[in-house]
């Protein structure tokens, strides 16, 4: 697999990162170099191996169903770039 401009732009869409035309070349070179590097794993046989997504060997800890509402609306909105009437505000979305 190689990153061409088209696939890179598509990837940028998926990651919500716009990529400017003048950066496309270098970026695709870098990403191809990384892919080439990780592609060496293809040579390792792993048919019989289970994947590990977290190395910690422990049961999932659970919590009780208790309400603890210590974060106020102000806390939650404090850093918001744009807010109004206790809402976060974003450009109009058409569904």
């Amino acid at each position: 697999m190689e990153f061409d401009k088209k696939s890179l732009l598509k990837l940028g869409k998926l990651a919500r990162i716009s990529i400017s035309e003048n950066k496309l070349n270098n970026l695709s070179k870098d990403l191809n170099s990384i892919l080439e590097f990780v592609d060496q794993l293809k040579e390792i046989k792993t048919d019989q191996v289970d994947p590990t997504s977290n190395s910690l060997n422990q049961k999932l800890e659970v919590r009780d169903d208790k309400v603890d509402n210590k974060n106020s609306t102000e806390d939650v909105l404090e850093n918001a770039p744009e807010k109004e009437m206790d809402f976060f505000v974003v450009p109009k979305v058409i569904e």
Partner: peptide, 15 residues
């Protein structure tokens, strides 16, 4: 929840 009818130019978000 998103509220689209509060403002002509913006969507309001309630979490």
């Amino acid at each position: 929840k998103s509220l689209h009818d509060q403002d002509p130019n913006f969507t309001f978000v309630d979490l």
